[in-house]
């Protein structure tokens, strides 16, 4: 009678360290945000005055 509830899916992988607990999907989104921001900063804008 003392059985556990069973969700129909498994949780995604999460990075756990001390009180941190971040899902892989969220980490990817945040890294992507930082990456896109840096790329936008560094890439020369077309039609610019670089040369």
């Amino acid at each position: 009678m003392n059985t556990q509830l069973q969700p129909p899916i498994q949780p995604g992988w999460a990075w756990q360290y001390s009180w941190l607990d971040l899902s892989l999907a969220d980490i990817i989104v945040v890294l992507l945000m930082v990456f896109v921001f840096i790329i936008a900063l560094v890439l020369p804008f077309p039609g610019g005055h670089d040369r």
Binding site: Q4, L5, Q6, P7, I9, Q10, P11, G12, W13, A14, L20, D21, L22, S23, L24, A25, D26, I28, V29
Partner: peptide
């Protein structure tokens, strides 16, 4: 079991592998 309790940062998590 879905890794979504309060102590597991459940408020920002989505079910499964989604952001």
């Amino acid at each position: 079991q879905l890794n979504m309790s309060g102590g597991q940062w459940g408020i920002i998590k989505e079910t499964g592998n989604y952001p």
